[in-house]
Design a protein around this nucleic acid. Sequence first.
DNA 1: GGGTGTCATTGACGATCGTCAAATTGGCGT
DNA 2: ACGCCAATTTGACGATCGTCAATGACACCC
Lengths: 237, 237
Amino acid sequence: MSVGLNPDHPCGRCAYYSESVWSSVKLGSVSALQRGFSRIALSEGQALFSQGDRNRGIFCVSEGLVALRTLHAEGTSTLIRLAYPGEVVGFRSFLSAREHRTEARALLPSRICLVGRRDADHLVQGDTDVLMKLASRCVSEIDQNHDRIIAAATKSNKQRLSDLLLRLMKVHGTRAEGQIRMRLPLSRLDLADLIGVQPETVSRLINRLRKDGAFFFSGRHVSAPLAMLVELQNAAE
Amino acid sequence: MSVGLNPDHPCGRCAYYSESVWSSVKLGSVSALQRGFSRIALSEGQALFSQGDRNRGIFCVSEGLVALRTLHAEGTSTLIRLAYPGEVVGFRSFLSAREHRTEARALLPSRICLVGRRDADHLVQGDTDVLMKLASRCVSEIDQNHDRIIAAATKSNKQRLSDLLLRLMKVHGTRAEGQIRMRLPLSRLDLADLIGVQPETVSRLINRLRKDGAFFFSGRHVSAPLAMLVELQNAAE
DNA sequence: GGGTGTCATTGACGATCGTCAAATTGGCGT
DNA sequence: ACGCCAATTTGACGATCGTCAATGACACCC
């Protein structure tokens, strides 16, 4: 399989082509892929699909950031996953042929590629490689869930918030004047969901991190001193 | 596909045959399935595989109960999953062709069926149905992880312990004299892992549940009054 | 029977968290 | 600039949790 540009393939110009679920679609089936292919532009806050929606196919984030949430009866919600460019969304309801159990919403202006359900079904049925790559995405989602469960059982809330901020810094941060800065793509409530506490607690954790000299907050703008860079490397995991 | 007994199939006599990953293996490939097939008997506390082991294939619990744990550097561990009869174990390292990230250990005397990696690979490559069923197992594991993450963010520790005990009662409990009784297959430390608290806290939660009149403990023997049966129905979820 | 180890419980303490209510801020439209 | 709504922060309080240390219970072995 050739890594890099491939003008005949819908994903051929995508930066994440080589790891794409569709990268191994054989030449003979590329037409089916093209038939089911469409691109979706989302503005910040716009929904890609809602909980209870019928599955429309397999989505792949091309640009931006998408949040997967589940809504509860009481009106609350829980942020389950952040999907960055190159990540696949909607494979759960696709594989189990049922309605979406989460809502997907853009946290930043985003571009999404969709392969419609009918054609995606044919491609998956006809090519073990494609299905195998989908399964690998499932496995890495399980891995991430396990990490989250382990972190919840192992680390303090403050540590988990710090880890989360470091990971976000790594993706969204820019370096300047001996500091890293970013605009948080998440609200305090989303932060609270991700580490499993109430939003008031997030405020207090932020105060403690500020006192520790680890992070400085001003609304959604966060900065960290260079000393944090060291831990930033370790936060790879 | 015929539901029920199938004498030509290694899983043909299994109570979970119809939902088995291997139930759709075509007649022509049954010989490969038989070649890779073996049965493993585990006594209580015995390990099926250890963290870091090379994957030996796809395991399916036929009888008993298996716990999947990840061991941490500090010597602690976290109980990630309980695998009951009919459930598949080891598919994560199988699908990603890497070593096990968890340890599997029998909590009760257990019987496990194994399809060796080489033959399982051929069967999975040659049959989309088999791979699709494996993927479905992945999806339901993701579902369970999500439920656990949501429960951790939504419910109190006491409620989570109560829910867990109810679920265990449903499987392991026997009814007698207006009560449900069971022998807990889990240590207090395992209970603590599953709800994400320290073992001392489990002791205190147990005291509170006792005071509430919800559960009565005597070592590993637990009983609950009939009133709990109502919630037992709801705990299906 | 006594020893020994693991598992489980209890007590005491400080730290942290959830909750409710009130105050403050920030963003955004007019 | 103003007003307004939602998001965020703060304060106060009780409840809960983690930690450390000590005790108790139990099985197992010699």
